[in-house]
Amino acid sequence: MPVNETLSQYSDWSYTTATAIYLLALVFFLIEQSFGAKGRLAAQRSRERARELVGAGGPGTTESVTPPAENTTARAPRGRAERIGRMGAALTILGALLHLAALLLRGLATHRVPWGNMYEYIMAVTFIAVVTWLVVIRKFPARHLSGFLLLPIVILMFVGGTLLYTVAAPVQPALQSYWLTIHVSAAAVSSGVFLVPGVASILYLMRSAHERNPGRFARFGSRLPAADVLDRIAYRTTVLAFPLFTFGVLCGAVWAEAAWGRFWGWDPKETTAFIAWVVYAAYLHSRATAGWRGTRAAVINVVGFAVTVFNLFFVNLVTTGLHSYAGVG
């Protein structure tokens, strides 16, 4: 089926616009992160005070089930920095919508799932990462950190859109299988989600270094959320991504059996996926091992993300293996 050039053109425009909007949101978030510390501290204090009040309802007096936090939290007046942060979040949502449009249009233009080469794959991975982060900031007080997440996303999207850009085209016969939908989307979703714990763990390492010695990252560390919040973000997202990643590798093996004649052959991509899997497995184990929680676990998570990035770039672009579908050069 021929490629619809018009839709593909619209997809490219959406992609570029989404990248630009993320960049703008990134600036907004950095402003919030830099100047909004006072307001955040005030909000946190009032939340804690509310919790103490609730906790003080000793046994036997009255019903003391924790009420929803919003009712009792004395709302701190919104500072200018917070307003800018909220605008950043709104921009990010707008960017994500355009990002989604770029993906959908690309799929409609080529009549297949829009992750058949590296440009499209990066588009999908960054989209998942943004969506994951939007969910995270709804649940955790971490919105002002969005800049640190958008930074790798903007870089990835820029590299994807310039160096790795591929004209919309059908995929080669080896990729024409329903496993492309299942295997590659599992891989893209898990890689996208893994980006969030990667960033959170780096911030965790800075924060915990600051907590141990307030002289380190003196100005930056104090503006980060408490280490255990960052740790929880990292753990929750890893726990979500790890089974997905396992599923992706498993589907890859099933597909490899149908396409290449063996389910596992230590192809560079398979090997690196195996390494990433082992590293993330080590992360999960480290959290259940005395002396390995905290800093060491965070380091392992960062290593896991580094392996994922290595798998995306180095294995696709430098080594030659059966997974050489990047469509570059």
């Binding site: 230590w266 560079p268 090997t271 690196t272 195996f274 390494i275 082992v278 590293v279 497995a281 080590a282 184990h285 392996v307 294995v315 080594t319």
Partner: peptide
């Protein structure tokens, strides 16, 4: 051992 396994598998990709 998990780390060693990951490390030992690495040359296979490189």
């Amino acid at each position: 051992l998990l780390f060693l396994l990951a490390l030992a598998a690495l040359p296979g990709a490189l």
